[in-house]
């Protein structure tokens, strides 16, 4: 048996997605509004489905409605629609009970940017 152990530490610059990534760390939902068709994408699209690439960043209210939810040993995840967005998002659910249908984007507690949806009442925003 050939045994090797790698410890890899990545430092990836987010480039054009910097506002989105910084927003996640603060618990803000930063979307992109297409300058041509007005569609608001979250997660943001660099190039809109209409072909438009001129877009501006907009901050969504941060609340979202659960469309489909999956639960099991892999964790709790959902496909959700953020209020104000025209696309849906895959999020990690934290503290949202079965049957609860909405939540609010939540800042991660480990400083690693990630899409987390928590209960609306606990965020007090």
């Amino acid at each position: 048996m050939i045994r090797r152990t790698l410890l890899l530490e990545y430092g990836l610059e987010p480039g054009w997605m910097a506002p989105f990534v910084e927003g996640l760390l603060k618990g803000d939902a930063m979307a992109r509004r297409c300058g041509d068709c007005g569609i608001k994408s979250f997660p943001p699209h660099r190039t809109c489905a209409c072909g438009g690439s001129g877009a501006v960043w907009v901050c969504l209210p941060g609340t979202a409605t659960i469309q489909f939810r999956t639960t099991g040993s892999d964790g709790d995840f959902a496909l959700v629609q953020f209020d104000g967005a025209d696309t849906s998002s895959v999020v990690s659910l934290q503290g949202i009970a079965e049957g609860q249908t909405n939540g609010r984007i939540s800042a991660p507690d480990d400083a690693v940017p990630k899409l987390v949806l928590g209960p609306i009442e606990e965020n007090n925003r």
Partner: peptide
């Protein structure tokens, strides 16, 4: 950088 950031499997 998006879905992967949710930790989704």
């Amino acid at each position: 950088w998006t879905d992967g950031m949710a930790g989704v499997t």
